[in-house]
Amino acid sequence: MRLEPVANPTLLRQLGLPALALGATVLVAMALALLAGADPLAVLGQIVTGAVGSRFALLETLNRATPLIFTGLAVAVAFRARLWNIGAEAQLYAGAIIAVLLGTGALGAPFVLPVSAAVALLAGAMLLLVPVLLKVRLGVDEVVTTLLLNFIMALFVSYLLEGPLKDPMGMGWPKSAALIPEARLPRIIDGLRLHWGFGLALISAGIVWVIQSRTTLGFEMRAVGANIRAARFAGMPVNAVLVKTALLSGGLAALAGWSEVAGAKGHLSLDLSPGFGYTGIIVAMLALLHPLGVVVTALFVAGVFVGADAMSRAAGVPTYIADMLLAVALLFMVLAIALTKVRVVRG
């Protein structure tokens, strides 16, 4: 057996294979449900209703999608330039810390929201700048450094919440004081539990799309990602492009944490993110790194998580089924995309 390139893939091939990947993921879901002793079709139904079946469920999904859009964009921007930022989790917490530092009384209305958003963006950008400078100056692989920074940041947040940022009224729980009302993101529509973080996430996706498709920087990012040697040979400032990519990516990831604190939670605790930074990788890959696609896949991934939570309470299938399915979907999808360009032949 060997692989043969497909010169002009048909539309059927380009759309059919990703569809097949999703179908295969559904089959895996049913197999896992059977394994857990539940009725596969009922489990699928409960996941769907749990995600979008009621107004409450839908709002829950939209809220869960908000940080995933930010981290998905952060990963998509970086991966497009082949900058392997696996540290979105740490950058997210950098943004969350800023939201608490500036939002608990240090600044008042009307400055607190825009200033803390800007500083959060900057903090995330700076956090990613360190590994990227190590990469371009000293050749240190950014995969490991960004990954390890996640663990360092988690410990740092734990220190802050047990020390300087600890809520004196928190009954001993490691959480921060609550943000002042002026520092909270308002709801988009009165009475609906959906904050402006979601709106900002959509706007960010639009901005990233414009940067990537309509600006020189976007072109340079793609060129560096496609072939770094060719880009260097063509005289592109490769290192500068990577640094700019890092600033954008780290800043976007930080907004995820900032909007979770300022919008959803109102305070910082250690369980702020159930791995939003890592899930952002799945979101970005399923979207084929397209910024507008990220919005769609973030909603899908959030729906799977929210739906699986609801299903788990009803059917008793462990909620980790969601993580398994998303990992399976990711692997099937990268394979499907590869197979649109090559086919397996005998001989």
Binding site: M1, L3, L32, F79, W84, I86, V143, Y278, I281, I282, M285, P318, Y320, I321, D323, M324, L326, A327, V328, L330, L331, V334, L335, A338, L339, V342
Partner: peptide, 23 residues
């Protein structure tokens, strides 16, 4: 054989293996 991105697949395998163990 398929030559897929070693970064992406590796992270996918980490997520899958971890989730499988927890599930």
């Amino acid at each position: 054989p398929f030559g897929l991105s070693q970064h992406v697949v590796g992270l996918g395998v980490t997520l899958l293996a971890t989730a499988t163990a927890y599930f």
